[in-house]
C-alpha cells in the first residue's frame, strides 16, 4: 500500500502541505478560499526539531496502521479501514468523543473546530494523488510503497 513518507532533510518548514491539505478538504478545492477558512483542519502536521544550532522540520500524518488503535477505540463505528487499507473517518457517524485522539500513537488525528468530528489523513482517496505531496515545493513528502520509502531513507 502506498503511503506518504516525509524526508526531513528536504523539508523547509513552509507548511504549504498544511494549506493544501485544507484545500483538499474544501469543496471547491480553491486554495485561497480554503486558506481563509479557519474551520477546516489540516490532517498533516509540520513539526520542528530543535538541534544544537539549527532547526529542521518534518511533516507527519496518519500512518494507516496495520491494526489501528483508533478503530478499536472508536465508540460510534465512524472510524474504519476500507478495502485498500486506508483508515477513514465517517463524519456522519462521528460524535467527536476524541477516543481516537486518546490512543493515536502519532498524535495525527485532530478535532474539527465544530467539535462534532475529527480530521485525519485519508490519502485524498476520493480524488487521486494526495494534494500535499503534489504541492510540496521541495519533494520533502512523497507518496510511496514501503519498499520504495525504505530504499530512499
Amino acid at each position: 500500500m502506498k503511503k506518504i513518507y516525509a524526508f526531513e532533510s528536504r523539508c523547509l518548514g513552509c507548511r504549504l502541505c498544511e494549506v493544501y491539505c485544507r484545500t483538499a478538504r474544501f469543496k471547491s478545492k480553491d486554495v485561497v478560499k480554503a486558506h481563509k477558512r479557519k474551520n477546516i483542519t489540516s490532517a498533516i502536521i509540520v513539526e520542528e526539531v530543535l538541534g544544537p544550532n539549527n532547526i529542521s522540520y518534518f511533516a507527519l500524518q496518519c500512518r494507516h496502521c496495520k491494526n489501528p488503535k483508533c478503530i478499536k477505540a472508536c465508540i460510534s463505528g465512524a472510524m474504519y479501514k476500507n478495502d485498500k487499507g486506508i483508515v477513514r473517518n465517517d463524519s456522519e457517524k462521528c460524535v467527536g468523543c476524541l477516543s481516537c485522539i486518546l490512543v493515536c500513537p502519532f498524535g495525527v488525528i485532530k478535532k474539527n473546530d465544530d467539535g462534532k468530528s475529527v480530521s485525519k489523513c485519508d490519502l485524498c482517496a476520493d480524488f487521486g494523488e494526495p494534494f500535499c505531496v503534489e504541492n510540496c515545493p521541495n519533494e520533502a513528502i512523497k507518496f510511496l510503497n514501503e519498499g520504495e520509502a525504505r530504499a530512499l531513507k
Binding site: 518534518f58 498524535g107 520509502a149
Partner: peptide, 23 residues
C-alpha cells in the same frame, strides 16, 4: 506541548515504518 518530535530521528523512523498499531 508534546509532539512526535519528542522522539529521536531514529526512533521516529522506526515507528513510522513499524506502525502496526496493535494494543
Amino acid at each position: 506541548d508534546i509532539g512526535f518530535n519528542v522522539y529521536s530521528a531514529e526512533e521516529r523512523t522506526k515507528k513510522i515504518f513499524d506502525c502496526n498499531g496493535g494494543y
